[in-house]
Design a protein around this nucleic acid. Structure first.
Lengths: 226, 226
DNA sequence: CGGGGCCTTGATAACTTTCAAGTGGAGTGG
DNA sequence: CCACTCCACTTGAAAGTTATCAAGGCCCCG
């Protein structure tokens, strides 16, 4: 059967980029390309770089003792990932779509004198990261799976939504399991929540990973639990 | 009816303190005392200070549009709270027990040159904070209320446990609603989980806020879901 | 054309929330 | 000193939500 909507957005997700601030420093940033599925670093790796995402999306995860996996965050264009604690990375990080990342040396995280610009940049990144993580808690704190899912889609809408006439196109770079592990749900429940949003005409799907947000306000109201 | 255990720990929670690192800077830290229930700052307040907890416990919360409240974190002795984003605090912060806090100016968060020591300190705090927040996700990601609660008590055990013979005493500074809002549960469910832990002889309660951890290993196994 | 992975859907079991009632301790006023 | 009130905690029963297990569909790719 055919999908409800067809379209051509005219550009692919990999074309969403951010401008990387140009800095004149002792240790100039280096751009790196990685394919979907490749790792940027592992949990407990000694941290040599932090990475700013220029294009593509990465996944930050923690492995649990019982084998389960918690998705801590997704790294979208503009985000900085890999900030270490005690000199080591605190999560796994792998690309879920082809990525361009800019690597910044973080050996001198604790030496602000040596490169004030870099330090300022890293501090800004850390503070932003804290706020994003706090935002994530509000999502997990929502009671119903439908609310959690709506809140997640609202996040995607704001971060990687692309205008499409009166609507907004959201290409989901992650699969249902990733979303489930991010929200503390099962893939089946995420699927049902998305089906419900489709039934309510809040969103439409062209294929499982290509979503059109039809009713912005309804999505935000659901996300807020109102 | 009488409780199962009686004891005298010989010191109160307010006596748990941390040594504040002495720094010679342009803007020396200032100690402040606040009572339980008093606010340190509000969400969106313009941020002038960050606070390191010397004694006592504070609660960091976000208010939701629907009136619900998410507890983002508890600030224990040694923790730094109030790191801003865009110059503003991102949470509410109030004391849930009498506190001594050390206020550090954060006006120059983005001026590492002016006070490298302070900047180093703030960076360290931010990176630690990120790790703590990530740890929190693993707690919320646990499937069962019993596992979440066990994970939370394990955290308290490690942060504010006091040796008591062969066992460990944990004085809970927060009430059941606080725990519930931290774990994404209801107070009733938290209460039932604690009752279950009592039934299994993992912990004993002298009163609702005074817990003795009887079986460390069992608690950690439950928390890990194994 | 066949296989595998991902997504969706259905039915049932397990768990949590909700609503309600009861308990106990701390503080207050008679 | 006792009765009373308040509030937090606990407990019970029913309703609601999600997880689990199972099956089927779709698409991509060899």
């Amino acid at each position: 059967m055919h999908s409800a909507l067809h379209f051509d957005a005219g550009r692919t997700q990999s074309e969403i980029r951010v401008r990387i601030p140009r800095r004149r420093t002792l240790s100039d940033p280096v751009t790196r390309r990685i394919q979907a599925g490749q790792h940027l670093f592992h949990e407990r790796d000694s941290a040599h770089f932090v990475y700013q995402i220029a294009s593509g999306v990465v996944r930050l995860t923690r492995l649990q003792k019982d084998g389960r996996r918690q998705v801590i965050a997704f790294g979208f264009p503009g985000d900085v990932v890999g900030l270490p604690a005690d000199g080591r990375h605190t999560t796994e990080c792998d690309a879920i779509s082809p990525c361009e990342v800019v690597a910044h040396r973080c050996a001198n995280l604790m030496q602000p004198e040596r490169d004030p610009d870099l330090h300022r940049f890293l501090m800004q990144s850390a503070l932003d990261d804290i706020r994003f993580l706090q935002d994530h808690f509000l999502m997990l704190g929502r009671r119903l799976a439908l609310e959690k899912t709506a809140a997640f889609l609202e996040l995607l809408l704001d971060r990687i939504g692309e205008p499409l006439g009166a609507y907004t196109l959201v290409r989901l770079p992650m699969n249902r399991s990733d979303i489930a592990d991010y929200l503390g749900l099962t893939p089946e429940t995420v699927s049902r929540a998305i089906t419900e949003l489709r039934t309510r005409k809040v969103v439409a799907l062209d294929d499982a990973n290509t979503m059109i947000v039809l009713d912005d306000d309804a999505l935000r109201e659901l996300a807020d639990g109102t």
